[in-house]
Write a protein that binds this DNA or RNA. Sequence first.
DNA 1: GTTACTGCAAAGCTTTTGCATCCCT
DNA 2: AGGGATGCAAAAGCTTTGCAGTAAC
Lengths: 133, 133
Amino acid sequence: MQKYRDKGLKLTPQRLAIFEYLDGNRSHPSAEDIYTEIIKKFPMMSFATVYNTIETLKKKGDLAEITIDPERRHYDPDTSHHHHLICKTCKKIKDIHSDFSIHIPEDQKGTFEVLDNHIEFYGMCHKCKTKGE
Amino acid sequence: MQKYRDKGLKLTPQRLAIFEYLDGNRSHPSAEDIYTEIIKKFPMMSFATVYNTIETLKKKGDLAEITIDPERRHYDPDTSHHHHLICKTCKKIKDIHSDFSIHIPEDQKGTFEVLDNHIEFYGMCHKCKTKGE
DNA sequence: GTTACTGCAAAGCTTTTGCATCCCT
DNA sequence: AGGGATGCAAAAGCTTTGCAGTAAC
């Protein structure tokens, strides 16, 4: 937490609770997910604080916004390069930390310079698969 | 267009204009992009008609919703399996019609059954690359 | 004491919905 | 003629913003 203070950020109780909730969190929460969790400890907390903190963390590079749900934004405290495996039924997301070397054929690449990639895998988690049978 | 009529869809002038705009369109437009274009021909047209038509085409499987922009939804009349190469600067999107066979290692897959994937490549288009230098 | 953060409320955007009217078939 | 589509307006849902009060430093 010291690293945040060093950057001139104030460590308010609400923020600390959000930091703690996000630390190691692999659930790819939305702003509302964060709000719903933190409000248990701080019933007076406002949505603006959640969004403010998200913005602060994003700017610091400690939180990634992931574009996998058209309904709302989700966030990922794991900012390392990885991919996502999404259950088509329950939308649960599993991180995939493999490195795939994917090269676009020259004739497809056009004049683009390719720098990075993110793969969304779609599938069925075990729970949904067994329920559907 | 006959195929739409056969399904019980009415071919109104507004719809025909939208169909025509989307046919072969590789620009991945948003609802507003569609609206802005069609309004030129039909100044009375409402946004509801755009969204209605999008919904109709989606249900028929003739339009795909693509989740690449957290700001708004974009649509793609190319419903075949393909990937996207996105310019980080100007957000222009190029379709990539290559087939990559990507297999997640067993220890990463967990109990998921993997069915499909979509790759977002990020890079710089030629125009933005030369401007930035 | 400063300065940044919080909470509240209002506003901004995108998308959805209800409904009377219209028009394609 | 009948039923689906249109246009309008209102509403809903997510996110942003302005601002006065508050708390961390």
